[in-house]
Amino acid sequence: MTDKLKKEIKEAFEIDSPVGKKQFLKDFRYPKLNKTDFILEQIFYIRKKTWLFSVLIMGFIFWFLHFYENSSTPNMNLWIISSLMPFLALIFTVELSRSSMFKMEEMEAGCLFGLSQIFLARMLIMGIWNGILLFIIALTANLYLPEGMIKIFLYLLAPYLLVNGLSFYFINNKRERGEIYSCAAIAVMVSICGMIMPRFLKRYSENIGTWVMSVVWITGLFMVLTQLRKMHKKLEEDRWNFA
């Protein structure tokens, strides 16, 4: 085969350079993230501060348990740990209402994974994270305190649920963007109540504290559930309402 022939064959079989390659690449629609990937990716967008503060609260509780003897007031140490729980709940709420705090709602609402799904992702991530923290705190507390696991869970969860329930209520019924201050105020108030309660209840029977906590626990749980349902409905149906 001569070189000339080779060249001619090559030319004959040469395909034209692609037309509109650039345009094709530009229009090419790659598969979008699915919901699970989206939620996993959101983990990295939870603020470092949020992780840090919640771990600090846990650390403080460990430190407290380790260095403080049980006092004469019944359940005193458990009451004190319990009154730190509102701050864990506050961190949760602050992370949830980040979009509205920084005026990102509208921009986020126009995206494929809209506001309701961002909310859900944050809720899920923070819920699981706080669940783990609460569990670790309860297990550790059980090593130091005589009250037993059930009572510890009751005391830890009651103020946590109450503050979250009230915070969700404020988020649902917000007028302006100031809802986060209401949530902070509630957290502080519940915390202070927790600190004062045992001294006040000392006069009555020993079990009265447990009764109070049970009532708070049930109220809190009820509020959290109803407010979550309301929130979900609002995000799904009415779409976000801008002030």
Partner: peptide, 20 residues
């Protein structure tokens, strides 16, 4: 979000738009 730089912001928005 004040802690974001321009690139972070775009990547965050891209995640919301489902872009890998």
């Amino acid at each position: 979000y004040p802690e974001f730089c321009a690139m972070d912001f775009l990547l965050y928005m891209a995640a919301l738009k489902g872009i890998p």
